[in-house]
């Protein structure tokens, strides 16, 4: 008869009443109104962030499948075009990003131990490493523009920066163009993620400065860390796939 056949009022006190009456509890200031407790809130944040990262994997995955298909279609052009990239700069950036991942992990650890100085120092270092990465990237891109290795009308028009392979096989130049298009698309989308990440870290730094992150509640710090590590992982794959394809040919700068 009554609809309460399906559900009965809850007896457990900690679920309490909803809505405005929720103020009766001594809630943590970081607990949003629609959650019952910090753990439910943290689980939601963790699952949400990971679902977002799954989405990111598929987002970059679209670029990777394009890379795989064209590399499979034009293996020689890809290897020789790759050999025109600056491996020392790529390796430097790999080192910078790995270091930033460590400082990021330590910043999150500072959240878990409640050490505000650790959080602040490590976040600053993370931001510095992130910006250093972007600066190196800038010089790398600038070099490609100078060498006419940017896909466009003047692509590979400077003989000083076209390897003997492409001089002997001009028919492979359009395929090298596709390689460089993918190089710019993949590292460009990655760099865009770095810029977003640096902005995110600046915001997290300001929150950390206010002392918001305590051991029982530092979700925002931890979730930003997950994002940062993910961007690092993308680079871990980009570096060998893009920079090192033709490294064994030698003759690189």
């Amino acid at each position: 008869m009554s609809t309460s056949a399906h559900a009965a009022p809850v007896a457990a006190p900690h679920h309490g009443a909803h809505g405005d009456s929720g103020h009766g509890h001594a809630h943590h200031p970081g607990l949003a109104h629609h959650f019952d407790d910090l753990e439910q809130q943290k689980d939601s944040a963790v699952y949400g962030m990971w679902a977002f990262l799954v989405q990111e994997v598929m987002f970059f995955g679209g670029l990777f499948i394009a890379y795989i298909v064209y590399r499979n279609l034009y293996p020689d052009a890809f290897a020789h075009a790759s050999n025109l990239l600056n491996v020392p700069l790529g390796a430097t950036n790999t080192a910078i990003l790995l270091a930033s991942s460590l400082t990021m992990a330590l910043a999150v650890r500072g959240g878990a131990t409640g050490s505000k100085p650790t959080q602040l120092i490590m976040l600053v270092l993370t931001i510095v490493f992130g910006l250093a990465f972007l600066v190196v990237k800038y010089f790398e891109y600038a070099e490609k523009f100078e060498h006419h290795l940017v896909p466009g009308p003047t692509f590979m028009s400077d003989p000083a920066h076209v390897s003997p392979f492409f001089q002997a096989h001009p028919e492979e130049i359009p395929h090298a163009k596709i390689f460089f298009f993918l190089y710019f698309a993949m590292t460009g989308v990655h760099a865009a993620h770095m810029i977003v990440g640096a902005g995110l870290m600046a915001w997290i730094f300001l929150r950390a400065k206010k002392g918001e992150f305590v051991p029982e509640h530092h979700d925002a710090l931890e979730m930003s860390g997950l994002y940062w590590h993910f961007v690092d992982i993308v680079w871990i794959f980009l570096f060998p796939m893009i920079y090192l394809l033709g490294y064994h040919f030698g003759g690189h700068h």
Partner: peptide, 16 residues
Amino acid sequence: HGHGGHHVHVVSLKMY
């Protein structure tokens, strides 16, 4: 874990 009970995992520096 109960109300407010919160599990925080601190990874050792050595491992990092």
